[in-house]
Amino acid sequence: MNTMETAAPYAKLHTKGLNLYYGQKHALKGIDLDMKAYKVTALIGPSGCGKSTFLRSLNRMNDLIENVRIEGSVFVDNVDVYNKKVDEVQLRKKVGMIFQKSNPFPKSIYDNVAYGPRIHGLRDKAKMDELVERSLRQAALWDEVKDELKKSAFALSGGQQQRLCIARALAVEPEVLLMDEPASALDPIATAKIEELIWELKSTYTIVIVTHNMQQAARVSDYTAFFYMGKVVEFDFTERIFTQPKEKQTEDYVTGRFG
């Protein structure tokens, strides 16, 4: 997998002229963006700028919302996911998602992680145990919960619940992880853990993360896209976005002058 990293990074996802309308409201305006494999791409911008909407377009979660119309293309491994032949259910297996508010099922820790694979047909108990353990380890939660896998997921702290949701997403073996402000509801220590985790996960996964927190974007991402009023104002290496942005708007935002 590292061959990709040495050469010019391969765009695991890219969009071309992506427009999205909520009824009359034009929420995304012609977005072209590349998201490289095994890299973290951060989407930043003020509330209502379209970054979350954009993220949800990547695994077609916006299909669930009424009155949404989408034009243009989203490519995952060069396949247009809005092509009629593409099954959105298969797409979502490949492109997993972590939500802003941790949303474990009212089930045990084990059953939360096993939920996806079980529905996708894994019946073998030993293999399931192994997969649950591996997923929880990857989400840096195993050591904290290994003795209480049968306990309700609600017994966990907020940060643990969010890592459980990450483990649950990893258990269906996706290639891309979309994260929608995954740490915005967590305290600084839990946030640090999630950020550390993102850092580790990017060797195996392509990650796109929406964040409100500028420092977080600077810490975890390789690339950053600044969204404003439904457009990508600037997209570059994270370092450059934060130290020498080309656009005045970007500079104003990252330095905290508006937003």
């Binding site: 979660m61 259910v89 297996k93 490949k94 508010k101 099922f105 939920y115 996708h120 649950r168 997403a169």
Partner: peptide, 23 residues
């Protein structure tokens, strides 16, 4: 039933019917 739970299931590549049945 919170929308969060449905979305959690759907985002795992679970079909709508399976989500209704399991969640």
């Amino acid at each position: 039933v919170p929308r969060d739970l449905r979305e959690a299931s759907l985002a795992l590549g679970v079909t709508k019917w399976q989500t209704i049945w399991r969640v």
